[in-house]
């Protein structure tokens, strides 16, 4: 009976998290179009509903009812499988993210490692999609993505090692607790180097501009999902946005203090203590997502050799240096 109760609680949590995240994914597209539109002095979506607020619904309905085209010479089982792998890898990382104090689907000790594992699996969806489409554009997109993910995963993992060293745990809950009791209240200041490396590699890992070489519109049409249409295309898009949300929440949890507020801010403004933790979490999350859009609107796309050089020659040495400094500091203090 107790087991049944626990299982039903977990199921309820999963339903809540998935529906809330899908809602946020839908509105992240709206937010992106609005923000980038304003940055380019356009207006963004405005026609569907007041202020275009129903645009994501219209997009969803459209992609759901579009014809599902499958190329003739594609490898059909793999073609069907690829978007599912993509969305599954993105979604399962949600299981270990604590959205506020005590709300987590599965509080495992290897939270960070699990997220890293799942984000590296996302590459399979992309590579297999590129290979199975039997099209040159998709193929090149998949190839680029494979190389990019292998390169940037290293620096992504290494940039988080400093946080793990300071907190002494892989568990995301413990990391947030450790941050709130640390000197600065969050790790972005002592881990400034790691934070920088994390931001750059997270953008590259989720294939977002300016590192969106696998789906470069101007050279590869749409890259790995050039041959996809309708619902499968929507799955790829959703996977990309969920990946963004995961990376942003990882940044929030590991560097920006999660759902907590630094103690000195609370000391200065005591009334902020009444704001629930989930509000802080979502505010920080949206700040990170806004940053994604901001650099997308600002920076031009990197060239491929520049991308590889940045990853291997700048980010990995920087993250190793960060680990060294953090280790020495930890040893001294």
């Amino acid at each position: 009976m107790e087991l049944l109760w626990e299982i039903s609680i977990i199921v309820i949590k999963i339903v809540v998290v998935v529906s809330v995240v899908m809602f946020h994914v839908a509105y992240a597209t709206y937010f992106e179009r609005k923000v980038i539109g304003r940055m380019q002095m356009r207006m963004g979506p405005k026609e569907v509903g007041p202020l275009g607020i129903l645009q994501p619904v219209a997009d969803g309905i459209k992609s759901f009812f579009k014809e599902d085209i499958i190329p003739l010479n594609s490898d059909k089982p793999v073609f069907y499988l690829a978007p599912v792998i993509s969305i599954m890898a993105a979604m399962s990382a949600l299981a270990v993210i604590p959205f506020f104090d005590g709300f987590i689907i599965s509080n495992i000790n290897l939270g960070i490692l699990f997220i890293l594992a799942m984000s590296s699996l996302g590459a399979y969806g992309i590579v297999l999609a590129g290979w199975a489409s039997n099209s040159k554009y998709a193929f090149l997109g998949g190839l680029r993505s494979a190389a990019q993910v292998i390169s940037y995963e290293v620096s992504l993992g290494l940039s988080l090692v400093g946080v793990m060293l300071l907190a002494g745990s892989f568990n995301l809950n413990d990391i947030v607790e450790a941050q709130s009791s640390s000197v600065f209240g969050f790790y972005a200041i002592p881990q400034i180097l790691g934070f920088f490396v994390f931001i750059v590699s997270a953008v590259a890992e989720t294939n977002r501009p300016p590192f969106d070489l696998p789906e470069a519109e101007s050279e590869l049409v749409a890259g790995y999902f050039a041959e996809y249409s309708g619902f499968r295309f929507a799955l790829f898009m959703a996977a990309e946005y969920i990946g963004m949300i995961i990376m942003s929440s990882l940044a929030v949890l590991c560097f920006l203090g999660g759902w907590t507020v630094p103690y000195y801010v609370l000391y200065l403004f005591p009334f902020l203590g009444a704001v629930p933790g989930v509000v802080w979490f979502i505010l920080k999350l949206y700040a990170c997502i806004f940053f994604y859009y901001w650099i997308r609107a600002t920076l031009p796309r990197f060239r491929y050799d520049q991308l590889m050089a940045l990853g291997w020659k700048l980010l990995i040495p920087l993250s190793l240096l960060n680990i060294l400094i953090t280790g020495i500091a930890k040893l001294i203090i």
């Binding site: 590459a123 399979y124 590579v127 590129g130 290979w131 292998i150």
Partner: peptide, 13 residues
């Protein structure tokens, strides 16, 4: 899964 098999995939492609 994340590194070795992706390397295989990469080489095959």
């Amino acid at each position: 899964a994340g590194a070795i098999m992706v390397l295989f995939l990469f080489v095959i492609m």
